[in-house]
């Protein structure tokens, strides 16, 4: 993170606190997903097994049509698998209904999207507090936590700005603050630099690095090798299968 004024202490790693015995944040076991379009069946995922531990920074990489979007939807509890088991922070979420999934998304996952997906009518801090609104947090506490999250991504002086008044990089930082504010087990970023120029992209990737150093579990979905290289481990996906569990720098840190 280049211009950000805040430095996050490295001692916050949860992996360190919980030790190696803690369950993986993400545990996929033979997960399949089949889409049905009329009479046509499309196997988007053909049996994915994957474990991601607390504090890991993992990039899921693959070309378009590889099934990485489907995987991201399942990881993000936006969709449920057709077969197999998905445990998020130890909880089996593969059979939950829409309402329970919404609660899981709210408590355990922070999303960062390619399109930022900020509400244009709300100021930065009001965007950041949204997940807390759905969590039923009291108003005063919401504002405090939203401001703290914006402070962490280096936007203290932009809290009252609307998305339209912010640069692309700043908007993605607001989105990151929104993902952080509930203190989720997992931050799921879907092509977070896809809509940014290279300097803003570097800025956002710096922020992820910093969050990783602070002990956050981050899963990054991308099709760009450059972006994937920032992660400590890369999972390659092709035709609905993990093809290469190894990636740049993965071995030495596991």
């Amino acid at each position: 993170m280049s211009p950000g004024p805040t430095v996050i202490p490295a001692g916050r790693s949860r992996a360190g606190a919980w030790g190696r015995d803690a369950p993986p944040v993400i545990e996929l076991d033979g997960v399949t997903k089949t889409y049905r379009t009329g009479s046509l069946e499309v196997d988007a995922l053909r049996g994915i097994s994957l474990a991601i531990d607390e504090g890991e920074y993992v990039a899921v990489m693959g070309p378009s049509g590889s099934g990485k979007s489907t995987l991201m939807h399942i990881l993000g509890c936006l969709d449920v698998p057709t077969g197999g088991v998905y445990r998020l922070a130890g909880e089996d979420v593969s059979t939950l209904d829409e309402t329970r999934l919404a609660e899981i998304r709210n408590r355990r996952i922070g999303f960062v999207f390619q399109q930022f997906n900020l509400l244009p009518t709300l100021s930065a801090w009001r965007n950041v507090e949204l997940p807390l609104v759905y969590a039923g947090v009291e108003r005063h506490e919401r504002r405090e936590r939203a401001l703290a999250a914006l402070d962490r991504v280096g936007l203290t002086d932009r809290v009252e700005h609307r998305p339209g008044e912010l640069s692309g990089g700043q908007q993605q930082r607001v989105a990151a603050a929104r993902a952080l504010v509930t203190d989720p087990a997992l931050i799921l970023a879907d092509e977070p630099t896809g809509n940014l120029d290279s300097s803003s992209a570097a800025d956002v990737m710096g922020l992820f690095d910093e969050l990783h150093r602070a002990g956050r579990t981050i899963v990054l979905i991308t099709h760009e090798l450059e972006v994937a290289e920032a992660a400590e481990r890369t999972e390659r996906i092709r035709d609905g299968r993990i093809v290469d569990a190894d990636g740049p720098g993965a071995g030495e840190r596991r």
């Binding site: 309402t99 709210n106 999207f113 997906n117 949204l130 759905y134």
Partner: peptide, 16 residues
């Protein structure tokens, strides 16, 4: 529709 999707991703239940 995008706003609704976003709110759902952030934890809004169908009821909400």
């Amino acid at each position: 529709i995008r706003e609704i999707g976003l709110r759902k991703a952030l934890g809004a239940t169908p009821r909400v």
